[in-house]
Design a protein around this nucleic acid. Sequence first.
RNA 1: GCUCCUAUAGUGUAGUCCGGUUAAGCAUUUUGGCUUCUCAAGCCAAAGACUCGGGUUCAAAUCCCGAUGGGAGCACCA
Length: 557
Amino acid sequence: MALQNAFEHEGETKDKIILGKILGTKPEFRTKVKEISKDISEIVSDVNHLSNEEQKKEIDTDFPEILIPKEKIQEREGLPELKNAIQGKVITRFPPEPNGYPHIGHAKAAIINSEYAKMYGGKFILRMDDTNPEAERMEYHAAIKVGLEWLGIEFDIVKSTSDDMELFYEKGLELINLEKAYICTCKREDISKNRRERKDCKCSRENLEKNNKNWTKMQDKFKPGEAIVRFRGDMKADNAVMRDPVLLRIIEGKHYTLGEKYRVWPSYDFAVAIEDSIDGVTHAFRSKEFELREELIDAILDALGMRKPDQGFFSRLEFKGMPISKRIIKPLIEEGKVSWYDDPRLPTLEALRRRGIKPEAIRKFIMSLGLTKANTLAPFDALEAFNRKFVDPDSVRLFMVSNAKKLSVKKLPVSSVEIPNHPVNDMGKRKIDVDEDFYISGEDAKEIKEGTQVRLLGLGNVSITKAVVELEGEYVEGEPKGVTKIQWVSQKTAHQIKMIIPKALFNGEEFNEDSLEELDVYTEPYYLQLKEGEEIQFVRFGYCRKDSQNQAIFTHK
RNA sequence: GCUCCUAUAGUGUAGUCCGGUUAAGCAUUUUGGCUUCUCAAGCCAAAGACUCGGGUUCAAAUCCCGAUGGGAGCACCA
């Protein structure tokens, strides 16, 4: 053993390490640490005195098996195992509120929960969490569905929290009758003050009869803000969430699906507790800002004698320089600094899609993040790396030049050329008509000196005869090896498009005024034949998504 | 302020529950090289980490205490 270790570490070994290895593999020695450690010291010292060759020889003769390289330990695939999970019986859910456009944060919650359902052959529920009539809109509801569909997430059950309004009333009343809840008619500020000072209010001492009467009054008489149903938690609790939180409150806004049918609405905690329980959810994963609610949800379900799901938490996901919250995005849109929620600089699903990010890449990326609770402020290039692998095998390679400079080539022996659409995969060829007038990139033109050669990719070598303002050259026979290879566009068929290059919206706290670069570029006419939304690689430039006939969005290098 | 969560290479993570089998694995990034009619992809290699301070132990990334950094909650939003 000492020999092996010495061999693996250039002829030197240490007794502490050997001791650890022995104890690790052979637990029976653990009681005799003192005795064996002395032996080990001696052996180790002997081994260290041997030369490399001597060590090798001894291993060869006595222990040849240890020269076989150790196999790598198999790494776990996917998410960590769930506690209390039975194959086929796991039910998870994704409960978005239809109050905004879906973004990468939604994707994380949806993907983690759906992966768990898949992993255990269980069921997955989409539940629109729509218990605040003032915030919900059909437009968002639809956008969320479109986004999830694009991500390729499938649901076994689709429902809305508001489907169960009668149940919330029933359970609310049950809690009141159990004296686990009461109606509070204090002012909002007083409630908040009492919470901070950990004092209960007079309403919590009212009798059952009064509470029942007030419950009825909440249905019509009380105005919004005048009365709420509070859970009897613990006003002295360290966890502020437990200090008699709101279960039901009056909101008179028009609900996007139910209209004005109800005016008393459940709070998030109450709704989630009841819904997860009756939907049979076994494992509920949410982002960690809800961590403190775990205790409350358990307490509500305990009070009602209802089944509790296992709750789990994961960190919020954000990209550097890409705001996720409506609070920040909305003003940017209003000021015209960002066009809309699908602006490619934003982390909304729609923006990611327009930018050329593939749903598979998002899934892989999110799975690679794991279930950590430490904050994840990922750089966007982590996602790009995944995306590149999906996009590379079927992106058509096209020529495109930016900051175009003219190059005329004399003695060109051909009038057209066929170029493969992909270097390794068979994606067909395209024919390009050429004459002596070309465009090349300004960046390349800068580097080209008179008297040198360049190769026009797929066409041939050109000897540069003049390199001022406009370039001139003549065709020469030659191999591509050792010559600078550049892309080109034929002037007579050049198609001009706008290239949009999205960059970080923010540098730290500061809005990046140069976050959207726009270039006027020339590309081949073949661009017009591609489908909208197709991913292209402009050779030596990067991957881009065709946004329209005259606009492309830069995806990444 | 109070309460809770969290801390592994430049970045993102595995390992932490149950201390030794891993002188810390993977991916990305960067840098070299190979391949290539792209600065793409692919292949090979290199670089690079257990926040700090105590304690327990033969042995600590792993357990305990403390400090520090980061985040969240303290809504009649979810």
